[in-house]
């Protein structure tokens, strides 16, 4: 138990710092940045207290917002996917989620891709809709969502594969 808390605390701090100091300076093709801080939300233990999880996600988004001067857009998007995570888990992992035996680090690659992609696209869609905040620029929103999502999904998959524990 203690181990989980330390692990998640370190993950939280590390992801915020990496996001603010490294990943936001990528600006691939001018505007495409990955937002891998959502890995915290993706990998948070499933059996844990849901209330705390939603609150931590809000805090995560808020910290990113403070670093990026973006108002509350990251907080809103993070809280949203945190609350609706069980829905996506059920969709992606099906039966094994019902039995509470899912470990995202050890899951099948196909299921993992579905789960990460769904969460990322929803997160980015909310993020960029709120950031642009102008329904007249729907094409810009979709454009940003599409390209940043691809970037984020690839990075998240690579990181989960690289850092997954080898033990069975």
């Amino acid at each position: 138990m203690n181990n989980t808390i330390t692990q998640n605390t370190i993950r939280f701090i590390l992801l915020v710092l990496i996001q603010a100091l490294v990943l936001n300076n990528i600006n691939f093709l001018g505007y495409i940045n990955p937002y891998i801080y959502i890995l915290f939300i993706l990998l948070y233990p499933i059996q844990n207290n849901r209330l705390l999880f939603i609150f931590l996600s809000f805090l995560l988004g808020l910290f990113v917002d403070i670093f990026l001067d973006s108002g509350g857009v990251h907080a809103a998007a993070s809280v949203f996917i945190a609350y609706f995570r069980p829905l996506f888990l059920k969709f992606a992992f099906g039966m094994s989620y019902e039995h509470q035996t899912v470990k995202i680090g050890h899951s099948e690659i196909g299921q993992r891709i579905t789960y990460i992609s769904l969460m990322t696209v929803i997160h980015h869609l909310i993020l960029f809709s709120l950031e642009v905040f102008n329904s007249g620029k729907i094409l810009l929103i979709l454009n940003k969502t599409l390209f940043s999502s691809i970037f984020t999904i690839i990075l998240c998959l690579l990181i989960t594969i690289l850092f997954s524990q080898k033990s069975k």
Binding site: F58, S70, G71, A75, F80, L130
Partner: peptide, 16 residues
């Protein structure tokens, strides 16, 4: 709790 936090972040967004 979700609704509350979501509304808080929306308020911050609109303010910004």
């Amino acid at each position: 709790v979700f609704l509350l936090l979501f509304l808080v972040s929306l308020a911050l967004t609109i303010q910004s």
